[in-house]
Design a protein around this nucleic acid. Structure first.
Length: 463
DNA sequence: GCATGATCATGC
DNA sequence: GCATGATCATGC
């Protein structure tokens, strides 16, 4: 069946809304539990009635449209998220370097995407997953500029003979996701003899989440960068450019300039300041389109005059059941650091607290950062393994000791001297704020931290 | 001054 | 009520 016009195709695609895959599947393909591309294939064969292929050409070649069937999920707090990144075509390292963006395999195949969103539900047979929405997606102008920058960066790395060093953390929206059954899925690259892991262009999960929320929930976000700005500067350069005029000013002065009430104790103060510097008034950072689509998390860093934060940087509380039930490769912690980009907003105190309790805080600049893969796979993995070891081998010791007049709970989880990067410390409301361990014992809620010395090292070029 | 444990403040 | 970011307090 050939669809002659875009309208004809989209009319057909919308007929799938509300249907389950079981209702669509004419060939009982879904009875076979394994075939992983199953859901997309069912739509191709049974719904659109064309033969499954792996061409370099888009699925609906005459219209230049590529079909993608992609899942979203409902979170416990009621919001929707993409369940995974959207994997596009495999990167042929040997060929892709000989193209320009407009002639690239990525652009040839994926410039128009027919996205069919279905809801994934845990414990439900995939036959019963339902298609919610069919959308013809073309990249908005500003997004396309960022995608182009990402594509350029991937190509540059291949040209430098570093295809084996590609990582999803390199880019903003368009990633080079590893693809293949395991680490032996490798292929040749043109400027190095080292075999590189097979990778595919992909739209990051955070990007897909923004699309899910836009098309299923009609939630829109607010951009700070427009296409013409992004034609002049890379995303990262633009971000730095927007913050630059304020380097050297106190937090109070920046607030004054932007008409923001100076309230440094408020949890949202720095967030409001950042929004203002990006030209967005009174908005929560969660609604900034670029941050949301690229999964950029901002963190405030307050340095002492000696260039080191007084405190380490805390993260989420640990769910010990989760930590001990996952494999490292799919663990929450690993994904957390692979997928998050950090925007460190760095301030420095001019004096020690002793010298002046009302000391000033001066803005030093921003650091756009993601944790190097090496660090995730070494130090962070070490932490994860040690926690698992202590719990699984029942070697976790929780003691209650008197310290002065106070009874304190102490444990043998990794301390700040563990490996120079990360450690574990309690974080509860008080001594009663406890959480259960897999063996039923209770412990004061714990969270993982990045050491203050490690954070100091990341931002040291700003001071 | 640092390490470690404790707990506060805010916002959803 | 709880998660998160932030900071305090004490002992060595």
């Amino acid at each position: 069946m050939i669809y002659q016009t875009m309208n004809e195709l989209m009319e057909k695609a919308r007929e799938a809304e509300g249907k389950t895959f079981g209702e669509i599947d004419n060939f009982n393909r879904l009875d076979n539990k394994k075939s992983k591309g199953g859901l997309g294939q069912v739509v191709e064969e049974s719904f659109f009635e064309y033969a499954v292929n792996s061409d370099a050409r888009p699925d609906f070649d005459n219209l230049g449209v590529e079909l993608k069937v992609t899942p979203f999920r409902k979170n416990t707090n009621g919001t929707l998220s993409a369940k995974e990144r959207l994997v596009l075509n495999i990167i042929n390292y040997m060929e892709e370097v000989n193209t320009e963006f407009k002639t690239s395999s990525f652009w040839t195949k994926n410039q128009k995407l027919l996205l069919m969103f279905y809801q994934w539900v845990p414990e439900v047979d995939r036959k019963d997953y339902q298609i919610f929405k069919s959308v013809l997606y073309t990249f908005p102008e500003a997004d396309l500029e960022i995608v182009k920058q990402d594509w350029d960066l991937i190509i540059r790395k291949i040209k430098e003979g570093k295809a084996h060093e590609l990582s999803e953390g390199d880019t903003i929206y368009l990633g080079a996701a590893s693809k293949g059954s395991n680490k032996t899925s490798v292929r040749d690259q043109p400027f190095s003899r080292i075999k590189a892991m097979q990778r595919a262009f992909s739209l990051k999960q955070s990007y897909m989440t923004a699309l899910v929320r836009k098309y299923i929930k009609n939630e829109d976000l607010i951009q700070f960068a427009n296409a013409s700005e992004l034609k002049q500067k890379s995303f990262k350069e633009l971000l730095e450019y927007k913050f630059k005029p304020f380097i050297g000013m106190t937090d109070k002065k920046i607030a004054d300039i932007h008409g923001i009430t100076y309230n440094p104790k408020s949890k949202s103060f720095v967030a409001i300041v950042i929004s203002a510097l990006l030209g967005i008034k009174g908005t929560k950072l969660g609604q900034i389109e670029e941050f949301s689509k690229a999964n950029i998390q901002f963190k405030t860093v307050r340095l002492e005059p000696n260039g080191k934060p007084k405190e380490s940087m805390s993260f989420e509380n640990i769910d010990f059941y989760q930590w001990t039930s996952e494999e490292w490769e799919e663990s929450y912690l690993r994904e957390r650091f692979y997928d998050t980009k950090f925007l460190f907003v760095v301030f420095q105190y001019t004096e020690t607290k002793k010298e002046n309790p009302n000391r000033e805080l001066v803005f030093k600049g921003i650091k756009f950062w993601n944790m190097p893969e090496e660090t995730v796979e070494n130090e962070i993995k070490e932490l994860w393994e040690e926690v698992n070891r202590l719990i699984n081998k029942n070697e976790l010791e929780i003691e209650y000791v008197m310290r002065g007049k106070k009874l304190v709970e102490s444990n043998n989880f990794p301390k700040i001297s563990f490996n120079g990067v990360t450690h574990i410390r309690p974080k509860g409301a008080d001594g009663q704020d406890k959480v259960a361990l897999p063996n039923g014992n209770k412990i004061t809620k714990q969270c993982y931290w990045l050491n203050n010395t490690y954070v100091a090292d990341i931002v040291k070029d700003l001071i």
